[in-house]
Design a protein around this nucleic acid. Structure first.
Lengths: 237, 237
DNA sequence: TCGCGTTTGTAACGGCGTGTAACAACGGGT
DNA sequence: ACCCGTTGTTACACGCCGTTACAAACGCGA
């Protein structure tokens, strides 16, 4: 854990703090958790961080104030964690000085993606092999994540919202079997109930668009009794 | 509300004063309201403010006069509230030494943004790397935030107030899905009720102006069951 | 190898979310 | 007062996607 990128989580809620720590460590980051602004000061004095994940709503000094303080003294990348609704709306479009924010309840994937993006912007040297680039190439296709568009050469392949969400998840988990339950969770945030065929149908529709020969799928293989697997090599740019 | 930044609102109209107080307190500022120049003097003697929000049009001593007086004695940041956005008012306001102005009727978000900007500027330590970029480029377009105008090359694309507000919010949140609720709140300050289609229609009208092919939108993507996403890369100047 | 139960592929249908034309209401400018 | 541009409302068309139904593919035991 020495050469790892270090993230300081500032979050008063024990449970959420632990969850964040777990999530981020799973991604290979070194993680410390501070439960207040003053704990944060101590932690930073002890060891500098590469990025700070900062909860807005905290007793005592709140996230806004901490963010402002940090900006006054340095430019440590900050990702804010805001409660749903009002807070978000207040931050959006305004120049708070944070580098990005994620709304609670947060989608773990989005959180990781945004942290990676901020790190990439602020530390150009760190190009995580596993990272979320903005253009992904596989087979003869290119998926542009920024614009949610898919290209085959210079021809665009139209994707619906559902097509894109599904393809996005698959492309980010190549050579790995994803169960229907996982796909359901990752694309729709719901869990899978027995006899639900919607994933199968969605996948069938996606194949029709991305497979050279939909009747002989090679990009997306079916793994009987397990789920589906994206088989192509995925590279950036 | 002790460590909070304090703002003194000088506004003769009770209703607008209360509205401003509410808006600003929601942002975490400490707010006092004075209803005339003399009330202002009393308030300032009692407790110094970090920023003054000053209505131009008032019976008795008007905002211009007050601004001039304040500048003669100190450099308290002042944001002027002008009745109409005529150029005369703007120039006078800035010549007088005000730090910024907002035209009535004001967009709450813009007001807050300008106050934040002035506060940040007035604390010289905080010179944000993202400076005062008032022109934003994306795709083949340039949005001038100061004048609220949009250009495609040297050709201007006419935007209504609503067009601009919506585009502004979108452009400030690229690669992020904004729900109808968020868009509603950010552009109109109201919350979204089920079956309200006004955002959809506003967005459709905006697309007609900014998309190369409105029937195949690429700048503003629809994310089904979630909202809309601005997909272009936005850069300053 | 065959047969049968289970799993998967996909066509077809329909509910519903979204796009947008048309109309109404509103407001600022003259 | 009128005009005209803007914005909200309504209505309808269309495409997406969940459900259903049935066919095809698979796997396991005989």
């Amino acid at each position: 854990m020495n050469g790892a990128i270090s993230i300081l989580v500032v979050e008063d809620d024990r449970e959420i703090g632990a969850l964040l720590k777990m999530l981020l460590e799973r991604e290979g980051y070194g993680v410390s958790v501070a439960r207040s602004g003053s704990e944060m000061d101590v932690a930073l004095a002890d060891k500098p961080a590469d990025l700070m994940l900062l909860d807005v709503m905290m007793p005592g000094e709140d996230g806004f104030s901490i963010c402002r303080r940090m900006r006054a003294t340095g430019n440590l990348p900050i990702v804010m964690l805001t409660a749903r609704g009002d807070d978000i709306d207040r931050i959006i479009g305004l120049e708070l000085g944070a580098d990005d924010y994620v709304a609670k309840p947060f989608n773990p994937r989005e959180l990781i993606a945004r942290i990676r993006a901020v790190l990439r912007r602020s530390v150009p040297a760190i190009t995580d092999a596993n990272g979320s680039g903005t253009r992904l190439r596989f087979d003869r296709l290119v998926l542009d994540v920024d614009s949610r568009r898919l290209f085959e050469g210079d021809r665009e392949i139209e994707l619906s919202t559902g097509d894109y969400d599904l393809l996005y998840v698959l492309v980010h988990n190549p050579q790995r079997v994803l169960s229907r339950d996982q796909l359901m969770d990752l694309t729709r945030g719901r869990s899978w109930e027995a006899f639900d065929r919607s994933i199968d149908v969605a996948l069938s529709r996606l194949r029709r668009k991305v497979e050279a020969d939909p009747s002989q799928p090679v990009l997306i293989k079916t793994v009987r009794n397990a789920g589906y697997m994206f088989t192509a090599i995925v590279s950036k740019v």
